[in-house]
Design a protein around this nucleic acid. Structure first.
Lengths: 356, 356
DNA sequence: TATAAATCCGTGTGCGTACACAGTAATAAT
DNA sequence: ATTATTACTGTGTACGCACACGGATTTATA
């Protein structure tokens, strides 16, 4: 297949085709100045021996340098996006030797104008590629259009906008991860159980992620005839935790048989805290993403399961694919769903310690 | 930390230290012929600027080639070890450009003499490193001794023998994975439930893996006060499936409330088949490793959970670490436990499709 | 002191590729 | 026919490192 003799050099091809190394090089990178006859000869040899260039030598010789832009939300050090950023940094370190530079840009995920501003500066700086989290749909569509005009390739991470002409996407299948959460939360639950859906009010738009997760969750209920379960929507305030505590306390006072709870965003630790304080840690609780706080409550047994999606890996692989496509000129896969990792108290340690 | 200026070349160091490139090279690879004074100068510069060599240029220039031996059990194409082998092949393809060759050797995991024979041939051939699955404890100890005498580094995969002086180990924490299995299998099970432990008779010794898993499982029972659960040990024959079917049928006829079953090896698909045929698919069933057959029954809902350990990744990382240590002269981590992956019908698809 | 030996050190070449540049041949314009 | 233009092709150098070779300097031996 692809192995064959990777020991064949340009020099050998030149000999076989009866031309010079320079000509072979011109054919390989098709930058003209080659007679039809020579091109034909070289191409014939090329397909015959199934040439694969020595990437080592290539990147040594190449004086080209690439600049990739990563555009993600600004965030605290313990946030989900911090993990994404770690993946970028790792990729940056590793691909430094291939002459690539990663420039990181941030925007406020609750303020679209900051995204727009960043986009303008980025497209003016003419990078070789852009890697972004398309939090704002319309604005991203606009940006994608501009990038296309300037022939700057771009990739999505975390979520994607299918109508655009992106290079790759790495992220979780949110719908499916909601479906998974449903099974973990609802299996073997008594039929008269009530389930809390926690939602946090935010200024910005509701994220597609959480919506899709919820859809998947509801789909599971439908498919498994669990309509007898009562779903209680609880709205939480983004700032006033005392108010939230009271809200929850009221819910538990007014309702019986609350046996499960879930949040579709990554802020389950707040719910965990309240449940613990209110002495309701026996409620089965599920959330998303391995924030430090989430992990803490998982280890304490307050959270039953966390669903994770390897954000650092997403970032790393996105960068790697950019290199594969732009530098090594090899085709990459477009849509890449991450595994839906199920973590619980008992397997979180090995998961966290595992370093590739 | 480690970033710093990776743009510093040997040439630059030579200038800073007031010596020639050759001298710097001699210091770097400490192969003598350097005066104390020169060495000191160079080393001073070296620590000051925290030199990291250009690996690209290094591997281009180096005409050294390394031969690594992989020693694993012979196996069918759908076996667990086939996945391990895939990881080796992937590593081989990727590190081909660094002039490394992977030679694969096989032994019969039920016949120690085949292992011994392979070991002899391998140590006679003087490879640069050995990577093996230490199925046979005593024989591996012996082999390790010989390898040490010949200064041939070696690594373990799948399981390890701690008393030896191995370079790295990649594998699952079997005890913990049994503990995980216990929670998945036993949580919310009625107190009068009975649980089937399936064991397959084999000529060879019982593997450490399965023993450790079972210990972990029992530990969970102990720690969670689940002694009321009745554990039924069922022995299965390796060949006669009709007999096995009958054995199981008898167990189900003579016992009530059998609600769960587990095997601590990878052959859960056989149990799944029988349970399906005997109309006991409602029994909660757990097993290990993603053999095709296991996955099939997971997708059908006969198997509730499979616990996986990324065998291909284990193999790949083992080879990578060998390169890191021997070629790039960087320290690697010794004991590496893989994540304990929890798979169910709902998240197996994305897990299988995910290609890094 | 002369010579041999040992120790130390700089230069040069090669790894396979990219690309600039110069050189040759073919074609067009004068 | 001579020159200018274009089309094509080969050679050479650089990338950063490894390592061989031989030159230079010091030390030992006679």
């Amino acid at each position: 297949m692809k192995e064959s003799n990777s020991k064949i050099r340009i020099k050998d091809i030149a000999e076989l085709a009866g031309v010079s190394e320079g000509t072979v090089d011109r054919v390989l990178h098709n930058r003209g100045e080659v007679s039809a006859k020579s091109r034909e000869m070289v191409e014939k040899v090329l397909t015959e021996i199934n040439y694969s260039p020595n990437l080592i030598a290539r990147s040594l010789a190449s004086k080209k340098s690439y600049r990739f832009i990563c555009l993600i939300p600004e965030h605290a050090k313990t946030d989900y996006w911090a993990n994404v950023e770690r993946g970028f940094d790792q990729a940056a370190a590793e691909f430094l030797q291939y002459n690539i530079v990663l420039d990181k840009w941030y925007f406020n995920q609750f303020d679209a104008t900051t995204f727009i501003a960043a986009c303008e500066e980025i497209s003016d700086s003419l990078p070789d590629a852009v890697l972004m989290a398309p939090i704002f749909r319309d604005e991203t569509l606009q940006f994608a259009k501009i990038l296309k005009e300037k022939s700057i390739p771009f990739s999505f991470i975390d979520s994607m906008i299918e109508e655009t002409d992106f290079l790759t996407y790495y992220g979780q299948n949110s719908f499916q991860s909601g479906y998974v959460a449903a099974r973990l939360l609802l299996e073997d639950l008594p039929a008269d159980s009530k389930v809390i859906f926690l939602r946090t009010q935010r200024k910005g738009a509701v994220s597609n992620q959480t919506l899709a997760r919820k859809s998947g969750f509801l789909k599971y209920i439908e498919e498994h005839g669990l309509q007898s379960l009562e779903l209680i929507n609880v709205e939480m305030n983004d700032k006033d935790e005392t108010a939230n505590r009271n809200t929850l306390a009221e819910v538990f006072e007014s309702q019986e048989n609350i046996r499960a709870a879930i949040t579709f965003n990554s802020k389950v630790f707040r719910l965990a805290l309240h449940l613990q304080e209110l002495n309701h840690s026996d409620v089965r609780l599920i959330g998303y993403d391995l924030l430090n706080e989430n992990v803490k409550y998982l280890q304490q047994g307050v959270i039953s399961f966390l669903i994770a999606q390897r954000p650092d890996k997403q970032a790393y692989l996105s960068v790697r694919d950019l290199c594969t496509e732009l530098i090594f000129k090899q085709k990459v896969n477009k849509v890449n769903y991450m595994p839906i990792d199920i973590l619980m108290k008992e397997n979180i340690e090995d998961y966290l310690h595992f370093k590739e």
